[in-house]
């Protein structure tokens, strides 16, 4: 099956051939056919390739592995495997509330017009800190987490709308939706990654090897050597049938 990347590489190869021809035989542009070739090879196709390659890079940079390719972020990635339903990112990740391959981006983008590009501009700053600047000791959000990102999925969901804690007092739901009451910092869902305390929590190791990505195993092996094996909770399915779903764990989302 031809992937978009394969198609893009094929277009690049064709354009390269045209441009190399023009470099060695520029006199070919003397005729109208040559001029058309030059217009295609120097103007039209490079523009098309720039757009397609930019989109491909944007999609690549949304991948969980891409975010965790910086060593600093590995502990945040590992926090997705915390065996505690109080950890909001872990609950979402382990129960497939967010796509596993885009786990970071799904919650850390802005659901606004050009929100994806704003997130990637912040990513450029992260790259600057990683390679040129100084990485801060504590990694914090650039700005308080906006309820908009939570409500992108939860708004209108029965489990959210009927939750008594959300509708407990008059106008509470409206305050949540207007971002006047923060989901994360109002004492309700206030444990996010908490990456500095990973040595005090238990981790869940999925039974299915497909859900134990390389970065997870690497991090376990190298970055957090101080985590004792006894802190890793293996899926109950490991001792029973191999066909168990990774969702069948004790760590299920309550709302």
């Amino acid at each position: 099956m031809i992937t978009p990347l394969d198609a893009l590489i094929a277009i690049i190869a064709i354009t390269l051939a045209i441009d190399l021809f023009l470099v060695f035989r520029p006199a070919a542009t003397h005729g109208s056919g040559g001029r058309l070739l030059a217009f295609l090879g120097i103007f039209l196709m490079p523009l098309l390739i720039t757009g397609m390659a930019f989109d491909t890079h944007m999609e690549t940079s949304k991948q969980t592995e891409y975010c965790l390719s910086c060593h600093t972020m590995l502990t945040h990635g590992l926090s997705l495997y915390v065996d505690d339903k109080e950890y909001i990112p872990a609950v979402h990740f382990q129960n497939h509330r967010v796509p596993k391959e885009k786990a970071c981006f799904t919650c850390h983008t802005q659901y606004t017009l050009y929100g994806d590009y704003a997130a990637k501009m912040r990513g450029l700053r992260h790259i600057y800190y990683q390679y040129i600047g100084t990485i801060p000791d504590t990694i914090k959000l650039h700005e308080p987490y906006n309820n908009r990102e939570c409500l992108h999925c939860h708004e209108g969901a029965r489990s959210f709308e009927e939750q008594s804690i959300h509708t407990g007092s008059p106008g509470q739901m409206d305050s949540i939706k207007r971002n006047e009451i923060s989901c994360l910092s109002s004492g309700c869902h206030d444990i996010a990654h908490d990456a500095m305390k990973l040595d005090r929590v238990q981790l869940w190791e999925p039974y299915d090897a497909r859900y134990r990505p390389a970065w997870f195993l690497d991090t376990l092996a190298r970055s957090l050597a101080h985590i004792q094996p006894s802190h890793i909770v293996r899926s109950p399915a490991e001792n029973s049938t191999p066909a168990a779903s990774p969702d069948a764990t004790s760590n299920t989302e309550s709302n």
């Binding site: 441009d19 190399l20 023009l22 520029p26 542009t29 390659a53 491909t56 910086c70 790259i127 990683q130």
Partner: peptide, 30 residues
């Protein structure tokens, strides 16, 4: 024709860089 040759040469270098960036999975490739 000389300017077209220069433009084509720049496109060749740009395309080579783009191709390399697409094939290398690294934050700096972007």
């Amino acid at each position: 024709e000389r300017r077209i040759r220069k433009a084509a040469a720049m496109i060749v270098i740009g395309l080579a860089g783009t191709l390399a960036s697409l094939l290398i999975f690294h934050p700096l490739s972007f």
